[in-house]
């Protein structure tokens, strides 16, 4: 049981990191990114390939994962920054599918749908499985803490205030002399870097990645985490990730206890309950569990 709880906390930490990355792009700069799993995938593949094929040390691989995702984020932002939110949602969704297809089809680089196995983990094999779990728990949550502190400072810095101003009204920010595009690109890049780092950590925890792992399902979970926690507040991203993990895993035990339904119906009830919880949460707490508290947000 302890091993399971630790593993789920590791996953929650990875989700929290992804939610933090998304929060910079969506929460601060107001750009919807439904393709976040694409950036997570880029980071994961970059680090996995560099550490298994070129034998880079792991920390360097993780950094490379962040850099590759950041570069892709910058490129993406340049193309899409002037799009309205609804267009952006669909374009980013498509982007993630392209990444998944490239990972499936460019076998020479990514090993295709076979995926990459045997990705090293720190001290994996030298210590007991539970020891490795605990080490990774420390690494992931340290990364969450660092990202949280840096991003919270960023959020309260002049840069963060401009981003929120852009989010609330782009035209006003532009009239006030702020180079809107440049700010958006920087925010997207920073967010993508965090997503890439999360992907890299994810790869080295599971020791295996495959294109199927970067399906829209993960995007939905992270968007759910951020919305549940409260878009905009960095603390909200972390609380939301923990909440989502509780929901994903809690429904497992609840659905197991329902009598008189077939296994498929249990699975359907479980996924349905996860979706329904989000709808109810939005309905009764649209600002999330931890609402953003800033002076810039004008009350309607």
């Amino acid at each position: 049981m302890e091993a399971y709880l630790v593993a789920m906390l590791v996953f929650a930490g990875l989700y929290a990191l992804m939610a933090l990355g998304l929060n910079v792009i969506w929460g601060l700069a107001g750009m919807v990114n439904l393709g976040l799993v694409g950036f997570v995938g880029l980071g994961a593949y970059a680090s996995a390939l560099l550490t298994t094929k070129l034998f880079w040390p792991m920390p360097l691989g993780w950094a490379a994962g962040a850099v590759v995702a950041a570069a892709a984020g910058a490129g993406m932002a340049l193309i899409v920054a002037r799009l309205r939110g609804d267009y952006l949602a669909i374009v980013t969704l498509g982007f993630a599918e392209v990444i998944r297809l490239v990972a499936s089809n460019e076998i020479w680089l990514t090993n295709g749908t076979d995926g990459i196995s045997g990705i090293p983990g720190p001290w994996r094999g030298d210590v007991s499985p539970q020891g490795f779990n605990l080490i990774y728990l420390g690494i992931v949550w340290a990364a969450v803490a660092v990202a949280f502190i840096l991003l919270a400072r960023l959020s309260h810095s002049p840069f963060g205030r401009v981003l929120r101003a852009i989010r609330e009204d782009e035209d006003v920010a532009a009239v006030a002399g702020k180079p809107v595009l440049w700010f958006k690109v920087r925010a997207f890049t920073i967010g993508a870097a965090v997503l890439g780092a999360a992907g890299a950590l994810y790869a080295h925890y599971n020791a295996y990645i495959a294109p199927e792992g970067f399906a829209p399902l993960l995007t939905i979970y992270i968007v759910l985490a951020l919305t549940a926690g409260g878009v905009g507040a960095m603390r909200g991203a972390i609380i939301g990730a923990l909440f989502v993990m509780l929901l994903l895993e809690g429904t497992r035990f609840l659905s197991g206890a329902i009598p008189g339904v077939s296994p498929v119906q249990k699975a359907a009830l479980r996924e349905g309950a996860i979706a329904l919880s989000l709808i109810l949460l939005l309905r009764f707490r649209p600002q999330g569990l931890i609402p953003e508290t800033t002076r810039t947000k004008a009350s309607p």
Binding site: A89, L224, E271, G272, I274, A275, L276
Partner: peptide, 19 residues
């Protein structure tokens, strides 16, 4: 917010059918 809720709705409907 409505768009996000509609993503959840599509999963809900998929699973109603599955059930």
């Amino acid at each position: 917010t409505v768009a996000i809720a509609s993503v959840a709705m599509t999963i809900l409907l998929e699973n109603v059918i599955r059930f």
